[in-house]
Every structure is written in structure tokens, then in C-alpha cells.
Amino acid sequence: MADKEEGVTIEFLAKDKLSGDNFEEKLSSVLEKVKDNYVLVLEEGWTPEEKSSLIQASMEEIDDDFPGVEFLGLDSANSRFDKAKELFYNRVLDKEYREGLTIVGNSRVMEKVKEERDTVSFLAKLENEGNK
């Protein structure tokens, strides 16, 4: 387990694994791991409503030991073609369009370095450094 070693566990979750859960279950599972100092890399983009749910749920969990989350995203659906694809997925295939990447971590161990539309980077802080 991550908390028995010095360092940060970074876990990658494939979209197939993520597609089974409804969002509330997924959010609960993400927060549980993040509170345990994991950084999660999810192979899917989140909608603005889902991201605000993440912020809201994080706020409700904050205490002296958990200061909240840091999250980064590589979102698609910015171009007209992407918008059309999103519409096709939603209306014709009746599926959620989730192209993109979402990275969520405990803000005590994850610090954003760079965030652009097509590039993100973060610093994973060792536990001692994160608890300064």
C-alpha cells in the first residue's frame, strides 16, 4: 500500500474499467483513494458538472488532515468536429462521450506545474515534503 512506503502511488485507470460505474460511485472511489495519497490518472474526460461535483464533494471531506484535491484535465470536444462527435455519441449511439484524460490527487502530494489545453504536468511531492 502507498502509505507504507515513502512516496506517492500513481494509478492509471483504463476507460473500460471506468465505464462500469455510475458517476457517484466513481467519485466516491476516487476521493477515497485520493485521501489515501494516491494520484489517479483516469482515461476519460469529465463534464463541467462532474468536475463541480468533485470540487463540492472534496470541500465536504476537508479536515485538518485532508486539504482537498488538485486536478488536471486534457479535454477534447473543443473543435467543431469534436462537438459533432460528441453529439453523435450522445444522440445516435446513446453513449457518453468521454475523450480526454483526468488526473486527480491529494493537494498535499500533488502540485500543478503546468496546465494547457494539450499539455499538463504536476509535481508529485514525497509525503514528508507534502506535510511541511
Binding site: 458538472e49 468536475k51 488536471l72 484535465g73 494547457e116 489545453r117
Partner: peptide
């Protein structure tokens, strides 16, 4: 400050939606 953050994208995205 750099305005391109997920929080800001989230606020704008929610209002747009």
C-alpha cells in the same frame, strides 16, 4: 495569474452548459 486552470474551466463550463 495564469487563468487556464481546471477550476476556471469548470466554472465557465457549468455556466455555458
Amino acid at each position: 495569474d495564469d487563468p487556464y486552470t481546471q477550476v476556471n474551466v469548470t466554472i465557465i463550463g457549468n455556466l455555458e452548459a
